[in-house]
Design a protein around this nucleic acid. Structure first.
Lengths: 261, 261
DNA sequence: CCATCTTTGTGCACGCGTTCACAAAGACAT
DNA sequence: ATGTCTTTGTGAACGCGTGCACAAAGATGG
């Protein structure tokens, strides 16, 4: 997953563990599917399987919510859907602004997942004057000069940043100054925000790198191939490093020591 | 973050904790930036600030790598960049296929983050015959009938799924059967894969819902405004629910009538 | 009304991850 | 050389999250 967090680490929100909160949307999705099939109740076992988690974990998660199931029967689907929706704050409307309408921003604007659950794309904002007024996914793009005004008028508290990394922090600062208190960041940068503002990041590149790590490990474990000989100091003394990382590399494809950003 | 994991839970890969692996790309990015500015060394304090983490955590992370810094001085930037790149497997070339070239798939194809670090878009695959041959981000889209052939020929081990949720599992199964062992899933579904296959998921909707949860909590904490008196209880007592969800909530944020024990 | 069977809710233990705090290592100046 | 100063590397404590295993709750059938 592309999970990045920058949460108040120790603040267990109202007794509900952060890990549980992160799973609630998963349960909700599974429950919604069941609801559409008019299934009246589910056992923790079934629902857990559908959500891809352990049933004991699921029961414990629900216990934090106070949602009660019925022993010997399971959970009432409709009731749980409502309870979780309410807990997540999805019973109200959340206007969202997307800043940076490039390829990604446009894709996000058209993403069905937004509209589906309480989230409404209130505005699309881009710094390029050529984009202004142009409709994307049916919504006209507005110029970033009006950012503050847009946020204020629509009472937007959630912002999505899909700009190039270089301007992400500046955009973030403006959003926060204008009143946004939750940010979903797609730009490959670490954003710094004042206390009270939540930032979650989605980073393509990081996810791929994590996969690559495991992939490499799998390859190295193969019986035929010798495990990475790395451990044996790669040469190059630390202190007086003059670099000249010149040319060493694994047995397979190599890459320059210094990689692009 | 949009992090979803489906990792071998207990398998601490070669002694490097999963949490550390997830941070390495972050360090790498910060280090690369320093490298471009020709900064020769950094202290754990500085680098930690740049990566947005605690310096003690950073030092411990590096200690797992065996990368040595120099006491009193710090870490050699170039050396670390190389070490981390190698550890993450970025010193080799990773061909990647993207399946599902809709808005999102197209955006991903054009995303710079892919090409920048050892990842190469080997192929774009879509089930729509109308897309076949059409170039997206400079790469011609291929039909999904040829999926197996493409994977085999290019030796692809990483696949990105950007299809609608409905077909994600089917696509996933085909990818895995064809030899892919790492999957980055953008479709809002839980994928089930055999052991040995890593899946990471990026889920827009889930990230937003998590933000909404915290946002709601912040709003509820406000002294002035009363918490949203949203939807009147959805009714629907489960089995024999008698809990009148009626009027709950304290003076501050509201809380479901039924709370955890 | 009682017995049986199913499924929840949770006490408990364990392991991972985070953080503190400090000794050791080295740079640098004298 | 010796002393001082900076910064690393890590032992140890703590807290969160996970999963087991079981008692309690309730449904169901006789």
């Amino acid at each position: 997953m592309a999970t990045g967090r920058t949460h108040r680490p120790a603040t267990r929100s109202r007794g509900i563990p952060e890990a549980t909160v992160a799973r609630l949307p998963l349960y909700l999705r599974a429950l919604t599917a069941l609801s559409e099939r008019s299934v009246p109740t589910v056992s923790s076992e079934e629902l857990a399987a559908a959500a891809g988690v352990n049933s004991a974990k699921l029961r414990k998660d629900f216990s934090y919510l106070g949602s009660y199931g019925t022993r010997g029967v399971g959970y009432d689907v409709e009731y749980l859907v409502y309870q979780i929706s309410r807990e997540l704050g999805l019973t109200q409307d959340w206007p969202v602004v997307i800043v940076g309408i490039g390829n990604l921003g446009a894709a996000l604007a058209g993403y069905g997942g937004f509209a589906s659950r309480g989230f409404r794309v209130a505005a699309l904002i881009d710094a390029d004057p050529a984009m202004t007024g142009k409709p994307v996914a049916g919504i006209p793009v507005q110029h970033s000069d009006d950012l503050e005004k847009i946020i204020a008028e629509d009472g937007v508290s959630i912002g999505v940043i899909a700009t190039p990394a270089g301007v992400a922090q500046a955009v973030c600062d403006r959003l926060v100054a204008a009143g946004v208190t939750s940010i979903l960041n797609f730009a490959p940068t670490v954003l710094s925000v004042p206390d009270g503002v939540d930032v979650r990041k989605v980073d393509l590149s990081i996810e791929l790198q994590i996969l690559a790590f495991h992939e490499q490990r799998k390859a190295g474990e193969e019986p035929g191939e010798d495990a990475a000989p790395q451990a044996a100091a790669p040469a190059a003394p630390p202190a007086a490093r003059t670099t000249a990382q010149g040319g060493r590399k694994g047995p397979d494809g190599d890459v320059p020591a210094v990689m692009p950003a």
